[in-house]
Design a binder for these strands. Sequence first.
RNA 1: GCGGCGGUCGUCUAGCCUGGUCUAGGACGCCGGCCUCCCAAGCCGGCGAUCCCGGGUUCAAAUCCCGGCCGCCGCACCA
Length: 588
Amino acid sequence: MKDGDNIDIGDKYDKIMKLAVRRGFYWPSYEIYGGVSGFFDLGPLGVRLKNNIVGLWRKVFIELHQDLVVEIETPIIAPEVVFKASGHVESFTDPIVECVRCGRKFRADHLIEAAVNIKTEGLGVDELTRIIRENDIRCPSCQGPLSEVRTFNLLFKTTIGPYSDNVGYLRPEAAQGMFVSFKRVREAMRNRFPIGIAQIGRVSRNEISPRQGMIRLREFTIMEIEFFFDPDDPRCDLLYRVEDRKINILTADMRRKEIQEPQPMKISEAVDDGVIKIPWQAYWMGVSDVFAEALGVDKDNIYFEEKLPHERAHYAQQVFDQMVKVSRWGWIEISGHAYRTDYDLSRHIKFSNQSLEVVKTLDKPMKITEKKIKIDKLKIIERYGGESSKIFRALSKVDPGEIHRYIDSSTGKILIDNIEIDPDIIVVEEHEKEIKTVKFIPHVVEPSFGAERLLYIVLDNSYTEDGERVLLRFKPYIAPIHVAVLPLLENDESMVKIARDIYKKLIANGVSAIYDSSGSIGRRYARADEIGVPYAVTVDHQTIKDGTVTIRLRDDRSQIRIDEKDLISWIRKETEEQLWRYLDNIMV
RNA sequence: GCGGCGGUCGUCUAGCCUGGUCUAGGACGCCGGCCUCCCAAGCCGGCGAUCCCGGGUUCAAAUCCCGGCCGCCGCACCA
């Protein structure tokens, strides 16, 4: 939305909140019991709007990429081991200390690093407490003494089944479901690769103090893709679709130089210059840029901000947040684009003992030299007698190519786990082998969106005041209600009848519509504008004569007259055209 | 979580300081009816708040006091 459309309309956030509550987009949950912060209900219009936003995301990211991306659904609750493997049990935790005097809370590790410059990575709460005591670190705010260090974990904890020691957690991201079921999905998709696995679902994070309405929730809908690719071949064969597109980027380098203005950059340049490390990530960022525009966000109000190392989540090697400007809060994150490397799959391989590698066939067979340890069994038994089995066991652990590492330089003997072995009992044999396939652990780039934030973004970008009137300029393809059907006069039976018939026909054809006959026609237009109905169909005297109706457009109040019979196809065509104005950019 | 400010029909608000006249008033909204040939017109009727929750003071609390919840702002925290 251009600034000119919305000059000085006071606190837009408050107005949107009021409108949302009054007209039924959303409201605070559990209101009659006083409410709980961080939870919101979606009302009738909110559900429709959210479904349309989710639907658009699904269309853009999944349906238009259906040769590449598949959607699955996994549980919200996972056993503890899943989040131990993912690192969330350990790293979704912050060490906190509290000032005994003023009650302020601080990140213990940050406090120590700032006060005495000791590296705190990997230290437990006891060690952190000890460092604070030993260095007499005090409250930076009031110099008061500090409490013991404790941890606060953002995971919601629960138990599974009647056994209280069977700990489970509500997922804070949908990603782990995709990693854990990676093997099954691959099998179901006949080993297609590269592959994106998408999931849309609820996640929970026990935020310390959520504010900002729909922006920071304790429970929300996440929409993410884990896109798996070969780290040795990260080329993206779709990059051409977006390579000429300019996106606004603020890199970590720029941020370190205290540059605050994002720079427009061609996606191809960002890849070639190494600004975005992984071409696939660059592609999804381009798609996300198109997606945000399709939601109605002005290009100037979108940029991608690269996160600094200490800002990144534990699993990520490069992260860009897609930022969108909204009233009151300025720039907020609507999506995160994380290069998660093989971190998650590797961890699940380790914790589950399952193979999650991908096998690829080489373009041409490769010759490798394979080393094998040939053991002189007889000599071992002869020389070591009853100790022989230990020797066999020790030798079996050793990688043949690495055997030289175990040779003790002073004695010349092989030393494995404190067992000494004479070198003459083994021979390392080398022979050439032709291999046609190799195994690798795929790397992952992840675009991840929060649906409720998008809902707010859409409202914030749609909200417009025109004198006394309020209108939501939703793009027609995401509007919760597409058409309002209005008889010009309520006391004219034939108008009412025709209008009712049109209404029935619309809903029978899957067009979301409302029928409104109460009050003056102007009032009804205004009511429809306020909930963002793009098209109002009015049945008037001429309709009775010749079967034509007026379509009144929300944004400029202009009217066109068409034959009632063409109504549905007109609406469909109009809506589709508006959508494809954006989507054409990525389907080239 | 700390500090500041706030919380009265769906919405905006009057009343609170100076307790009783408040069975809480108005406007908008919503519902029904009348009227109306195109942008919140008018008329009639109706709906709707035990004043955020709990406790205390008092003969008497929307009003004074304490605690909690929720919201906004700042700090802290967080993706």
